[in-house]
Design a protein around this nucleic acid. Sequence first.
DNA 1: TGTAAGTCAATAGA
DNA 2: TCTATTGACTTACA
Length: 548
Amino acid sequence: MQTTGEVSVFSPPSDVRSVSVDNDPVIQKETPEFHHSTGKEEALNESSSFISGSPASSSSSLSVQSFIKEETDSGDDEQEFDTARLAQQVKEALQRLNIGQRVFGHYVLGLSQGTVSDILARPKPWSKLTSRGREPFLRMKHFLSNEHSIQMLSVIQERLRDRSSDDVIRNILDQSRLEMLDDDDEDDDDEGSRCQHSGDESHNIIRNILQQAKHEMQTQTPAMNDAPVQQEEEDYGTLEPSVQSLADFVQSIIQKVKCEINEDAEPSVSPSSVSRSFQTLPADPGQTAQGFKMETRQSCELQSLHLDTFSITQRVKETLTVNNIGQRVFGEEVLGLTQSSVSELLSHPKPWTKLSLKGKENFIRMHLWLQDPQNIQKLNAMKKTDHRARLKRALIGSECDSQRCLDVGGQGFCDRWGQCEAMKRPRVILSAQEREALIAVYQTEPYPSQHTIERLAAQLGLHTSTVSNWFYNYRSRIRRDGFSEPVQTRIFQNPTGCSPVSASLVRLKQEPSDGEMEDADLQREEHNHVSVGVQSVKREKDEDLSEL
DNA sequence: TGTAAGTCAATAGA
DNA sequence: TCTATTGACTTACA
């Protein structure tokens, strides 16, 4: 999971700020001293209290955030910490108070549960940490030294556990309504009050916007296309008010356009009712003069459309987590995507400027979903329906199992509809050595020639398509992860620790090309090295390679 | 035809 | 049962 790596020592990341207890409906409802802030900006303000939130309560309940800031300002950076001991103390405290790593990570460190777990389980020595790496430990140290903060977190955890989902929904709805009022105030009071804000009505709006976006892309001048690449923070958008208000502005446009169209609401924004392909979108909506006017307006506004993809994904993740909604349900009902695609989208949001139209559609959907005051309610309803459907399918499935039989040819199990499991091609899992070899070649030749791919495939005992796919995917993920190495976790460790493949395969790159003399002995030797790793993985062997 | 972008299904791990 | 990862695939485009 992607963590909020942009966090600076005293500036909690956007996700932390936006889900501070200030905005936590659970806490606000249950604890009198927690007040709603008067507006979003206040909630986003770093100086706003982290737990107490309200200025009225700041004197009595010192916030974790402000406490951390004050304490760390005193120059703890100069000290040498025993990180292992610190981690142990935190673990004990969390255990004692029954506080989960997720809550601790989210509210105190601004990190995901996975990262917290890693830090607590394997704390690096202080001297080995960079200033960024030291930050969580500073936060932990200050957290531990303030009993009040600990108690507050305990309260948060308790509230989160105890609250029924209905209360959570109700509070989130309240919060959404407040935000809507804020938006409307900023935008246009009259319009805002006239327009009924409903996610169900956004189908046509998305359609029109996307259609216009496509049109705009097609008619863009070369100068626009050749615009210099913006810095990454600009790509992702920032929490600068101007950029944030742009997203809000887009939302207000959508509302206004909906009012102007005055069309009947679509039954649902569900992706099942919306084509995921721009190519199949309905015809131009602006057939009338008014339609054309509207189209022109949208067209102008779309030129400045820029959603903060990172912020959107953070907010979606928070909302899903708080409301215990899985990526699967969210993906299927809101985006029309599978869980894995949702996971990728949420964990590795691409900058808005790097997205294709199709990619932008997902973020527009997420943005609209976040704005929908009934989003959680709808998804929970879907969840219940989905659960019943799955139970039913499971029941039917168990009945079907008894009807399964071995097919005549012994190819594998077939169900009563004749679908054979044996037809499925087993998934290729590359060994650590193979991966290492591929990376080694990538480093010298990120775009390998067909000749290189074939030789690499032969030496590794892989299909050429597997090798070329690997290069496509690796390049793609390098780009996605910001030009650093993509995460490679599923590595079959070589027990010997040796990696004879990479060196020899780098050498492969320097070998003579087709038609030139080859070192057959070296080739065999390399192949033998590779075979060690190959034996441990399940995959289909290239038939041609059997000749080797 | 090769590449980028987007996506899925299988899988691992918690 | 959940999320993250990754090999493979589809589509659009130059």
